[in-house]
Design a binder for these strands. Structure first.
Lengths: 330, 330
DNA sequence: TCAATGCGGACCGGAACTGTCCACATATCG
DNA sequence: CGATATGTGGACAGTTCCGGTCCGCATTGA
């Protein structure tokens, strides 16, 4: 049953696995005659997936760009690579693509076998954090983010434990309305069932997230999520906000600085960078890691943090085994 | 024609877009009766995609993990996010997943409209390099990597311009056999048609890559690619190799250091790190960016590089506008 | 207990699919 | 130029499948 659909998917999979195929080879793989293969090709085209054919010697079929985006048929390892990449994208919160990344991640993680999900989690725990270089304080659990995104899409009520600014934990039961990404962090805008009011939650402070399976009707009178969250944030997202002039043109700065890490502005042939963090030492290390000279405008504490870092580096360097000969580490 | 196949794909797409659906809603969206919907669900199950159904109030269908990985149906933005993530994964060369990442990237970039590819290229130019923090010398063009991967898969002859170690450029015409990832770099192992011999090429030194469209028969007597490349590398992949003791347990080090950037070994409650680069200053900056103390074992030039960096930081800090008041940058 | 929800058998008419046969168009190679 | 390899698509016939309709059953939650 459903022979042809399965075959079309297999055909699509073959066309994706290799850029070009001879018709006869495809027909053999699919165990149909060449005539049927041609009909299948036509069907794919009718579905909006452009297959280009070239006649003559070295001719054949290839799936090309242009029409609808065809279903991606991935094997397990490829799926792991995709999921890992998306986790990175979501954690970096690639500007303009926060949402698609999380959506795509929800799609793919929903269907991957549990043991594969384990592998992904292990991998991304090991690597994502390095890439982002966020201060360790606000580590985002991408699994939580995906769980929240899915609940909001069903839509389905959610239970979780929330740790507020002062470290107190409370259990919450909410109806999720919207995920908002602001200032390098993710927020959930939701209706709190117990408090009977709208609330926003920092996703990195949520834990033990449990979808309840209970669907709900979205309220008509929901305020605008972005506005609501923005108001809550108005006062200080970060403990420190720094302004630094980088001694390089803005183009070079763009290549060095992740758009999610800081805001850049042109300043003649130099670049003004605004960066926020809860930890001045983190900013100092960030600056030290860049291959450009700079000038701190504010805050003055940052100057101290940089001096401290320089001192620390000098001390570490001084400690080096001077003969520089191997034969140490046991 | 092919009514049912298209409908099955749409159904799959719906099931991916939202975790749970009521049968009636699905039937309405697909414009069929509920009986036909049930038949479609059965068809999906027969194709190996497990759809779970729960009866009763709040029941419905959901696509679950377990069977084959279903075709991923992405919209354009999601595809961009996926492609961006994969580029990151390929450039980082996530250990064990270098190949799947490049394969998946080839699959998806093959079918994305040109303007979307432009967006991806712009995005990843801006961000990937930051994440990797590679020395600027060896910047890998992921587009080149994908082009090579596809040619090797067809398999199809390839023309490109190669810049060798001494900077000389030459045009090459090769039959690509294998991509090998070693020491943070990608190599192409191929048969050089003009020189009539096996060669390996560093992908970051290839440019103007052009698939010729001419397919070829793989030779039987091809040597093992990994071995061949490894031999070529035996002498110095990097100009400098450093050994540094990090003053933290290996677990913490693992979270701080990308597995592709350096090799870590336990050393009591500390960690021995081996790291290679063509630029000592890059290593110095890498160390400065980490929130741990360290001791350099070798080379002694690295100690100097760190002192230089510390001096530079101090100088930059000293240059700061001392009153630390805004109102500068025009 | 009732309502909402999913399940699947039976039937039937119409539509779709496949293989076969065939004439044709378009490249590449010698 | 001709031979060969490759893709194109019409026509036909037999078979299969598909979708709608109707119906009774099973499971879940309020």
């Amino acid at each position: 049953m459903s022979e042809t659909t399965g075959r079309l998917l297999r055909l699509l999979s073959l066309l994706q696995a290799r850029p070009a195929w001879a018709g006869e080879e495809l027909a053999q793989r699919l165990e149909v005659t060449d005539r049927t293969l041609r009909r299948d090709i036509t069907r794919l085209r009718e579905l909006g997936y452009p297959v280009e054919a070239t006649p003559g010697r070295y001719g054949g079929y290839r799936l090309v760009a242009g029409g609808a985006i065809p279903p991606l048929l991935l094997d397990e390892d490829e799926a792991v690579a995709v999921a890992w990449g998306l986790r990175t994208a979501a954690a970096w919160a690639l500007p303009g693509f926060e949402d698609p990344a999380v959506m795509a991640l929800a799609k793919i993680e929903q269907v991957l076998p549990a043991r594969v999900q384990e592998r992904i989690r292990a991998l991304s725990d090991a690597t994502v954090r390095v890439g982002t270089q966020f201060p360790s304080e606000g580590r985002l659990d991408v699994g939580t983010l995906v769980a929240v995104a899915r609940a909001r899409q069903t839509p389905e009520r959610l239970r979780f434990v929330y740790r507020d600014g002062s470290g107190r934990e409370s259990e919450r039961h909410v109806e999720p309305y919207q995920l908002v990404h602001a200032g390098r962090r993710w927020y959930l805008f939701a209706w709190d069932r117990d408090r009977e009011d709208w609330r926003s939650f920092r996703v990195d402070r949520m834990s033990a997230v449990q979808p309840t399976g209970m669907r709900f009707q979205r309220r008509e009178d929901a305020p605008d999520a972005a506005t609501f969250v923005a108001e809550g944030l108005a006062v200080g997202v970060y403990s420190y906000r720094a302004r630094v002039v980088l001694h390089c043109p803005i183009d070079e700065a763009r290549r060095l600085v992740s758009p999610t890490a800081a805001v850049l502005e042109e300043d003649g042939d130099r670049t003004l960078m605004r960066i926020g963090a809860d930890d001045l030492d983190w900013i100092a290390r960030y600056l030290a890691g860049m291959p450009v000279r700079f000038t701190v405008l504010e805050p003055s504490e940052l100057v101290e943090a940089i001096c401290d870092l320089a001192e620390r580096l000098r001390a570490d360097a001084a400690q080096a085994v001077t003969p520089a000969e191997p034969g140490s580490a046991p």
